[in-house]
């Protein structure tokens, strides 16, 4: 009996293993590996929940009253105001929910743009390694790396005269560097492989080789790096908003925390706790997702 019940389970496992060996592409193997990573799946689910919350804010379904003064000063949590109200009586729950959308906006814009920039410059530098292009890109990376980040942001904010996008510009102009370094290293490895040589031999133009044949092979790096950049962007936004260089019109966790620095000294913690907790859970989930992605996509990684 025990053998009979044991059989389907082991047969299932064998079928699974067989399926895994049958599909031998990088992506299907990675997807299979990722689905088995419990922490990664939990992280992904939490990120998706946040994303739905952000979509709702963008569509105007909820958190529409984040700027209204709806109650008294520092009301305690109630059925009407789930997390209470702040110093001037605005609803903390709506404000922190609205900030989810801000976080996604900052994270997505910065992650996509700096990944694109990093991929293009890194690929060019790698392909022309040792030549002038490479020297220039390396020099640019060294220069931007040597200017302290917050000073660069402050300077860009002033150069753009308080433009709402100055924060994004500053982050993109520094965050592409890490991605670019990794892509450059990978491209140097890839460009000596046979498929590139073959492409050269049949007369494929150089830039087609770079962007159609080499860059797609660095996609796993780009994917992982963009999740890392996303997290870095959200975390930087908080500090920049606290320094008065971040979000200009709208609401963000950074602004809430910087509001709360006055409140915590008076013993009112709701604003601080709401923003910190929501932000911590999102960043933590994203980190877990990013780790699992890295494990799934990098077969050489020793963990």
């Amino acid at each position: 009996m025990s053998a009979a019940t044991g059989l389907p389970a082991s047969a299932g496992r064998e079928a699974q293993a067989a399926a895994a060996t049958r599909r031998q592409t990088l992506w299907s193997k990675a997807a299979w590996k990722f689905r088995r990573d419990r922490a990664g799946m939990v992280g992904l689910c939490i990120v998706l929940v946040y994303f739905v919350a952000a979509l709702g804010v963008w569509s105007g379904w909820w958190a529409t009253g984040w700027a209204e003064v709806a109650g008294g000063k520092w009301n305690p949590p109630s059925a009407e105001h789930w997390f209470g109200t702040n110093l001037i009586g605005q609803d903390i729950y709506q404000r922190s929910l609205f900030s989810v959308a801000t976080a996604f906006e900052v994270g997505l814009v910065v992650a996509v743009l700096s990944t694109l920039l990093g991929a293009v410059l890194g690929a060019l530098a790698g392909f022309f390694s040792g030549k002038l292009t490479d020297e220039l890109v390396l020099w640019l990376m060294g220069v931007l790396d040597s200017i302290p980040f917050y000073l660069l942001v402050a300077a860009i904010a002033f150069a753009l005269e308080g433009n709402a996008w100055s924060m994004h510009v500053a982050m993109v102009s520094t965050f592409w560097i890490t991605t670019s370094r990794l892509v450059r290293g990978e491209v140097i490895k890839l460009k000596n492989l046979e498929f590139v040589e073959a492409a050269h031999a049949i007369g494929v133009p150089e830039y087609t080789i770079i962007f159609r044949h080499i860059v797609p092979n660095t996609l796993h790096i780009l994917l992982v790096q963009s999740t890392i950049t996303f997290v870095a962007a959200i975390k930087s936004e908080v500090i920049l908003s606290f320094l008065g260089l971040g979000v200009k019109d709208g609401m963000s966790w950074g602004l809430m925390i910087s509001e709360s620095t006055l409140e915590v000294l008076a013993g009112f913690f709701n604003n601080f706790l709401a923003a910190s907790a929501l932000m911590f859970v999102l960043v933590m989930a994203f980190n877990m997702f990013s780790d699992a992605l890295q494990d799934a996509l990098d077969p050489r990684k020793v963990s």
């Binding site: 908080v238 500090i239 915590v264 000294l265 013993g267």
Partner: peptide, 24 residues
């Protein structure tokens, strides 16, 4: 260490100040 990575520096600073320095 993942927890340490996920909390913003600013939040840690404020929280530690409340816990260790403030009258609360």
């Amino acid at each position: 260490s993942v927890v340490g990575m996920s909390i913003s520096f600013l939040i840690v600073v404020i929280a530690f100040q409340i816990i260790f320095s403030s009258s609360y």
